[in-house]
Amino acid sequence: MNIFRLAGDMTHLASVLVLLLKIHTIKSCAGVSLKTQELYAIVFATRYLDILTSFVSIYNTLMKLIFLGSSFSIVWYMKYHKTVRRTYDRDQDTFRHWFLMLPCLLLALLIHEKFTFFEVLWTFSLYLEAVAILPQLVLLQRTRNIDNLTGQYIFLLGGYRGFYILNWIYRYFTEPHYVHWITWIAGLVQTLLYADFFYYYFLSWKNNKKLQLPA
């Protein structure tokens, strides 16, 4: 464990807790894409299949449980909570996220480190995580501006993957044979997807005005 990875995990934890807190406190999920939340629940479900079979550390297992619990709770709130579900604008959140899952599954069947059930699903979860934010970013474009909690959520989510890239660089130089191209490329693509959002987030912060994404 290195400081970059710890910072990444804490930022990731903060992003899901910020979102869960927002939804639980104000009983609203306006501006949040259910599609992205469903994709994240699938990412964690396919990423942590080995939670019962392989034990790495208390920290690792605890974080996996928190991520699984929070992502499924957010989906539950948005789909089934009597008050929250009414604030979900389904006619704006129309990204066909199944179109994201199929290419990721096909790619995972083609490019992976080992052709085993767990490894292919784990690789699928990596590819899916890279693109899972797309429905949310599309929704933001549609709704034009975002409230600061959703902005913080995306900002933290992008930051977590940025820290992970620093972690991979650090591990590459400090651990012999630590080479995982698939993880690195997926993580880089994911961070690049956030890059333009970061740019507009920074502009709005600098000019101290509401975040307006270009059409």
Binding site: S54, V56, S57, F67, H180, T183
Partner: peptide, 10 residues
Amino acid sequence: TKSSDSKDEL
């Protein structure tokens, strides 16, 4: 590089 060692990350 055993791919299992990469599973120490979340």
